[in-house]
């Protein structure tokens, strides 16, 4: 029992750290398209680790079913909204800063 608690704490703390890393990332990266990748961190692994940790805390109950539903919803909706943003920016004429030097 205590093992599950410790594992869930590790998951939640890792998720929190990843969230802060993503938050720093959207200030660190230079243009819109690269910031999308930083937000990708907070949308995928950070949210997943948080929700898995919370499911471990609640155990088998209605709450964990709902947490799993949030997980599924985020899993399907976050790439869709990322793609919608990138697509709208691209069609709106926003040019990415590309790295052209070598290669």
């Amino acid at each position: 029992m205590i093992l599950v608690e410790i594992i869930s704490w590790i998951f939640i703390i890792a998720g929190a750290l990843l969230g802060v890393a993503g938050g720093i990332g959207i200030h660190r990266f230079p243009d819109f398209y690269s910031r999308l990748h930083a937000v990708g961190i907070t949308d995928t692994l950070c949210a997943s680790l948080f929700l898995i940790g919370l499911v471990m805390q609640t155990g088998m109950s209605i709450a964990s079913i709902k947490l799993c539903l949030i997980f599924i919803l985020m899993f399907f909706s976050s790439p869709t909204s990322s793609h919608a943003l990138a697509d709208a920016a691209f069609l709106g004429g926003l040019k990415p800063q590309l790295d052209k030097d070598d290669d």
Binding site: F32, A47, F50, L51, L85, G92
Partner: peptide, 21 residues
């Protein structure tokens, strides 16, 4: 750009949902 703002608001929304959970 406006897209940066929407991106940030999207992230804030995701985080808020996690915070409520």
């Amino acid at each position: 750009t406006i897209y940066d703002r929407i991106l940030a608001v999207n992230m804030v929304g995701t985080k808020t949902s996690l915070l409520i959970a």
